[in-house]
Amino acid sequence: MTQVTVWNEYRHERDSDVVAEVYPDGIHAVIADALESGGFDTRTATLDEPEHGLTEEVLDDTDVLTWWGHAAHDEVRDAIVDRVHERVLDGMGLLVLHSGHYSKIFTRLMGTSCSLKWRESAETERLWVVEPGHPIADGLDEYIEIDEAEMYGERFDVPAPDTLVFNSWFEGGEVFRSGCCYRRGNGRIFYFRPGHETYPVYHNDTVQQVLRNAVRWAAPGDGPTPEFGNSEPIEEIDLSDDRTVH
């Protein structure tokens, strides 16, 4: 069974009555329940736990990590970012959600600022499926409509995605690349835009379906483990060339 760790700052839900009304047990609890209902083995981890809940043991037992952060990106310890980064390169899947675009782990993996335009106006968002054959789009209609959303607008300062699954249109006129797939090392990364803390986006059945599809896509497969460094030949060849400087 795929093991998923759902990570969340868990600050807004404790500091804001508005957010607590939408997510009384935390955003992570809603996401974890949605993934568990899809057959995944889930656990949660939050910022204020020892080692942010992301101990070596937890990460070694994690196939896919989901990441939601907003107000406290700078409080995530660099040593933990190093640990997550290494695990992604080794093959752990990573789902970066909404304002996690500014997280230390996502900006490191992208190598860019990951900046964008934004506006909080509870406006309609329409996410168009622009790659209907992708596994993350399985079972979806042509678009997902979210009644109340925070606007994110282009330019989104990220590398061009390997695959773009969703492109958003907002009521105010902006567009945004909202479902971006990447590969870094052996790990698969999916950035999914919806999910502002004051709106019930993660209670949306279709959004939950996307999260489940994304976990299936990002989970490590059973392919061969690549080997690096000096290598012995597979076929018999002459190894007497002594011109190397290594």
Rank of each mutant, 00 (worst) to 15 (best):
M1Y: 11
V6L: 12
W7K: 03
E9P: 07
Y10R: 12
R11E: 11
R11K: 05
E13Q: 09
S16G: 12
V18E: 15
V19G: 09
V19H: 07
Y23V: 11
G26K: 02
I27L: 11
I31F: 08
T42H: 07
T42P: 05
T42C: 07
R43F: 02
T44D: 07
T44Y: 03
T44L: 04
L47Y: 10
D48Q: 08
E49L: 06
P50N: 08
V58T: 11
L59K: 01
D60M: 00
D61E: 12
D61T: 00
D63G: 02
V64M: 09
W68V: 00
G69A: 10
G69V: 11
R77P: 07
V81G: 02
D82R: 01
D82Y: 04
R83E: 15
V84N: 03
H85A: 14
R87E: 08
R87H: 11
V88Q: 07
L89C: 06
D90F: 13
G91Q: 08
G91V: 14
L94K: 08
V96D: 08
S99E: 13
H101A: 09
F106M: 10
W118E: 12
V129E: 14
P132R: 14
H134T: 04
L140S: 06
I144K: 00
E145A: 00
E145H: 00
E145M: 00
I146C: 00
A149I: 10
A149Q: 12
M151K: 04
Y152G: 02
P159M: 04
V165S: 09
N167A: 04
F170V: 03
E171L: 01
V175D: 15
G179R: 02
G179P: 03
C180R: 13
Y182L: 05
R184T: 11
N186G: 09
N186Q: 15
N186H: 12
I189W: 12
Y191G: 03
F192G: 00
R193N: 13
P200F: 07
V201E: 14
Y202F: 13
H203E: 15
H203R: 10
V210K: 02
L211N: 03
A214C: 01
V215G: 01
W217T: 06
P220W: 15
D222P: 04
E227W: 13
F228D: 10
N230P: 10
E232F: 15
E232D: 05
I234T: 14
E235C: 04
D242F: 14
